[in-house]
Design a protein around this nucleic acid. Structure first.
Length: 492
RNA sequence: CGGGGUGUAGCGUAGCCCGGUAUCGCGCUUGGUUUGGGACCAAGAGGUCGUCAGUUCGAAUCUGGCCACCCCGACCA
């Protein structure tokens, strides 16, 4: 009884919502489009942050924090970027409330406290950051400037979904400035590699690195790179982006430096980000109808120990062993929970930790005490086996590695099976409808063709894969010559 | 922003057509029995029925307005 989850087959969208809510990751808040990230969900995000933050630091970046508010005139300085986000900006127009004379005890906006200039709540921080960089950069010796910030941003979305698209979300945004275009491009690609490595190593989620078409490019960027992941329902999900900004923001904010020859040059920029959307990706990449499956490297709890007992005396005996194991596992840096609650049956606990995606469960009962064994169950395969109590600690790191690998391999196999090559428009449509996934096809490179295919099939060009080989072909839509296949998919 | 739906205890719901002060399950509290895959018994606590107005002796129920949220679409990370 208790927490029933809609099956993926019955209603994938509802399955996702059930999982988020019932596994205590997040819930809808009183504010439309905004969510409360609950402790269990937040602890997964913290794991992601820790891993990413280390990778950023290892590649020479430092953290800083810039304001939530951006003056409207500053925001609109880079026109394409401003235009791109204009439709979804929250704006602060007043700075004070006052008592409402017509409704005792209630407040109203004080019309006399109107701001001289409206403040845009950042949908992204390029504007405020580049206007600051202008002050920080004078010489080539000030470059490169490699800064990241962890922050919240607001995009007033029409339709929201927990983690995948919320009006306010958490992310990191890296903003770098360089002396040369080549260096900025290298930075853009380096950070794309960092994201891909993070997705694959920590999230156990294979991704395709690629470049966005003009139509899908970040507003204000010269080039946008992305990592694209495949969800279990056959829809693609953009999991991270890295932008080569060219000199667009240097132009808009007049950011120049003196080079070695004493000449003024404009700086080159990049920006890159991943968000709490990764939580949605993590859930939809791996989980099943029984609940979450969290790769060990991101699991808030690695191992849960569940005692099976009839009496308090029995529990006490088991507790001694369980605490011994807990202590030893913790020495290895693992997060262990010993669930000794005496009001719930073991079966209930089993189901609960499966729902929450804890990678390993150890059950220990009177029989085990006699035999010196424990029952070990892994979440990814549901496999259970009896192991020697004496060796369980030593074997745990290997077991967790194996789980991490199995989850990745499974996702990779699924993803690879969901890539289909087609050579005609009819085939593209059929594959999208019947199989889903990525469809690899020739495209003539025009925004017009891309737009028409999008209108007719709801599929977009997810990316032009970086590792794709040049091959002569014809565009499946226009019949014009093409040198490369791109990936189409319906996407989140 | 269009189309649909729903607001009743912490959660999920019945009641609404046909007006008479709210049903059931889960959860919670207390006590007892249980515990190797989602326990059971008993006794309890918990409600401005989204909101405002109207009709009526009487409104969860009828009428009108408003609000909120969810789902589907367009737009988007």
């Amino acid at each position: 009884m208790g927490k029933e989850i809609t099956s993926r087959e019955a209603d994938y969208s509802q399955w996702y919502i059930d999982l988020v809510k019932k596994a205590d990751l997040a819930e809808n808040s009183e504010v439309r489009g905004c969510m409360v990230i609950k402790p269990y969900g937040y602890s997964i995000w913290e794991k992601m942050q820790q891993a990413l933050d280390k990778m950023f630091k290892d590649t020479g970046h430092v953290n800083a924090y810039f304001p939530l508010f951006v003056p409207k005139s500053m925001f609109e300085a880079e026109e394409k970027n401003a235009e791109g986000f204009a439709k979804e900006c929250a704006i602060v127009t007043h700075y004070r409330l006052k008592n409402d004379p017509s409704r005792p005890g209630k407040l109203m906006v004080d019309p006399e406290a109107k701001l001289e200039e409206e403040l845009v709540v950042r949908p992204t921080s390029e504007a405020i950051i580049w206007s600051t960089y202008k002050k920080w950069i004078q010489s080539y010796r000030d470059l490169p400037l490699l800064i990241n910030q962890w922050a919240n941003v607001v995009r007033w979305e029409m339709r929201t979904r927990l983690f995948l698209r919320t009006a306010e979300f958490l992310w990191q945004e890296g903003h770098t400035a360089h002396a040369t275009a080549a260096e900025a491009v290298a930075e853009t690609k380096q950070m794309l590699d960092v994201y891909a490595e993070f997705a694959e190593t920590f999230m156990a989620m294979p991704v395709i690195k690629g470049r966005k078409s003009e139509g899908e490019r970040f507003p204000g960027a010269v080039d946008t790179y992305c990592i694209e992941a495949m969800m279990q329902d056959g829809k693609a999900l953009q999991a991270g982006t890295s932008h080569f900004l060219g000199q667009n923001f240097a132009d808009a904010f007049n950011v120049q430096f003196t080079n070695k020859e004493g000449k003024l040059e404009k700086v080159w920029g990049t920006s890159w980000g991943v968000s709490t959307r990764l939580m949605g990706a993590l859930i939809m990449a791996h989980s099943d109808d029984d609940g979450l499956i969290i790769p060990p490297k991101l699991a808030p709890i690695h191992v849960v120990i569940i005692p099976i007992f009839k009496s308090e005396e029995e529990l006490n005996k088991l507790s001694v062993k369980a605490e011994e194991i807990t202590k030893e596992l913790r020495k290895l840096g693992l997060s262990v929970k010993f669930d000794n609650r005496d009001t719930l049956k073991p079966g209930f606990k089993f189901a609960e930790y499966e729902l929450k995606g804890v990678p390993v469960r150890i059950a220990i009962g009177p029989r085990d005490l006699e035999n010196g064994t424990v029952e070990v169950a892994r979440r990814d395969t549901k496999e259970k086996k009896v192991m020697q109590m004496s060796s369980i600690v030593a074997e745990m790191p290997t077991l967790l590695d194996s789980i991490q690998q199995t989850i990745y391999d499974r996702a990779l196999k699924f993803r690879d099976e969901k890539i289909t090559k087609v050579d005609s428009y009819e085939e593209l449509k059929r594959v999208l409808d019947e199989k889903g996934g990525f469809v690899s096809a020739h495209w003539d490179g025009t925004a017009e063709t891309e737009g028409r295919i999008k209108d007719e099939t709801k599929a977009t060009i997810r990316c032009i894969p970086l590792d794709s080989v040049e091959e002569d072909g014809v565009c499946i839509y226009s019949g014009k010559p093409s040198k490369q296949r791109v990936l189409f998919a319906r996407a989140y």
